[in-house]
Design a binder for these strands. Structure first.
Lengths: 344, 344
DNA sequence: CTGTTAGCGCCTTCAA
DNA sequence: TTGAAGGCGCTAACAG
């Protein structure tokens, strides 16, 4: 037995297919309550569901948004996918998620797939590996890039969503200064992206403002094995960074890591060096992924308001204002157990 | 400008639409190489992509499998989704993932949505909350349930994929016995599901075999706040379990947790009690989620071969043998830093 | 308020 | 080897 169709429902309810269609699309004013009831019952009885493909072919749009992430095995992006799903559900819209594994060819491929599905828009949490392609896509449907900031008017068609990266590192520095730290590092892979540059700038500015010592500890990612699935690379990088941090000539008493994954790595590396956190050394991450709280001691971090950001991204697609734009969210300092006054 | 259609390609290539269709569906024997080339070029030039909705409406099937998980924010299920995506890609098939948040009503809803998309099959990592519904679904398309074992022939239509749960706990006990432990607990929420029962049985049998002391420490989940998104509950539960474990009359020297999330919680709880792992106490988890390796010390655990399991699930759907079945995978002992000889 | 009708883009015979 | 034609299930005019 195959799926019931709109005709079957119409026959059972004793009305025409168009009334069923009206009913399904909430045009209740076009029929008598009695008709509504009959339709309702017929649908129930047959277990009828409209065929998405047919509907989509007719209307030209799918109730679907596309999401690109480097990998769902990375907990941050799993959480993002979850947040996007929740946000889209408010519009009765589904989400199709693809992992790109940071492969530009796959990214292009996957975008084309998404277009073939007639998605209403695309959210990408995968870096702007291929801005030209993204820009071309944005002609067809709204494109929202996560955690990306535009340098100029190059990408006039793309909207972006991110936290205020400079503020995040400034807040981290201020928190540490407030605790009494006078020598702080920012641990990061080479700051090639605009985001990381912004974090580095925020850091430097705050250091200068406070009139204290501070520098970047840049970790070469070629040191660590590449892991396209789980993105565990930053963890490994962080762990290996610990020694480099402690060897810095200006003897930092605290570190800010570019994100939580790296911070957790630094934390583990420090422990192996016999450095006690937060007694001997303070540590701050960025993101507030779940395992920040499960780390020991629980990681102080700057939280990204991920649900709010997902909501904003989805709104840009499903309730567009017309013009693309950039939305910047404030990070929130979550003080936990890895920060304390130096030597305490 | 709207998407190019098969007609446009045909016109540009100077052939008929059906040749394009033949080309797209790899029926090359039906045309001259020269024609192939022309078609190839025309497709390239227009950036043509067949419209999924139209194709699906015509053929009745979508190249799509559905995946249900409690929440993608839970790292285990993010990793599962990633593995399923990789497995499905080999069949040129896409994955549509839904989070159920362990809400039976939402689970039913989402399954119906999936059916409306004409998915080729459904994989569920969400517990069999509603077996009747699943069973009914299995009439329409293959259904594969993850981490579920059937008690009897009730669910004749559903296939299952899981590790050998009894063996997992047995292996854990044997590893600990080998290290010299003589008193071991299994920490678990009430073993209501068949899986947990199997783990408890495997534990008890191995304890009896070894002729040592062992018991279950059952943690009431009402103690911890519910977290439908991230499933952090087991972590909190594990942390609070530490005291209960240490207070057990038979003075265990090691614990096996029902999964890694709980094990990590126990590890943190122990540290707060001043119990040093593995010197004072040994700890084993199950799953091998990414953060098992990032825990400090790195968690000894029984790994689920998640990619192999995902491959098997996808194969059941996209290359079905016809009859549903159960596939059981062997867990793999990953010895890391949380297990040692007692008192060492 | 309800029924009729003409496609949406593609695939698949069938005939040429 | 290619072209023509019908229809997948649904929607949205438009006519009654």
């Amino acid at each position: 037995m195959s799926e019931p169709k709109i005709q079957d429902v119409a026959r059972l309810a004793g009305v025409s297919p168009s009334s069923i269609s009206n009913f399904l699309n909430n045009r209740m004013e076009q029929m008598r309550p009695a008709t509504q009831l009959k339709i309702q019952q017929a649908i129930q009885e047959l277990g009828y569901r409209p065929n998405n493909a047919a509907r989509q072919l007719k209307t030209g749009v799918a109730s679907m948004v596309g999401l690109l992430v480097p990998s769902l095995a990375n907990q941050y992006f799993g959480a993002l996918a979850c947040a996007v799903e929740i946000a889209a559900a408010k519009y009765h819209c589904h989400v199709m998620t693809f992992s790109t594994f940071r492969d530009p060819a796959r990214e292009r491929e996957v975008m084309a797939d998404l277009m073939a599905y007639n998605v209403q828009g695309i959210i990408t949490g995968s870096a702007l590996n291929d801005t030209e392609n993204l820009e071309a896509l944005a002609v067809r449907c709204p494109v929202v890039a996560f955690d990306v900031t535009r340098s100029n008017e190059e990408h006039a068609r793309i909207s972006t969503i991110s936290i205020d990266n400079a503020t995040a590192t400034s807040m981290a520095v201020e928190h540490l200064v407030h605790l009494g730290h006078r020598s702080i590092v920012l641990v990061t892979p080479p700051p090639l992206t605009l985001n990381r540059q912004a974090r580095a700038n925020g850091f430097s500015k705050a250091i200068a403002n406070a009139g204290i010592t501070g520098d970047l500890v840049i970790i070469d990612p070629t040191d660590a094995p590449i892991d396209p699935h789980g993105d565990t690379q930053l963890f490994a990088l962080g762990r290996s960074a610990a020694a480099k941090i402690m060897a810095a000539p200006f003897r930092p008493t605290a570190a800010i890591a570019i994100n939580d994954m790296m911070a957790i790595g630094v934390g583990v590396g420090m422990k192996h060096l016999g450095v006690q956190i937060p007694k001997d050394f303070s540590l701050i991450g960025i993101d507030d992924i779940f395992f920040a709280a499960a780390h020991d001691p629980p990681l102080t971090t700057l939280r990204q308001p991920i649900q709010a950001m997902a909501n904003a991204a989805v709104t840009r697609i499903l309730a567009p204002t017309g013009i693309p734009g950039d939305e910047v969210f404030a990070p929130e300092l979550i003080v936990r157990g890895t920060t304390a006054a130096p030597g305490k």
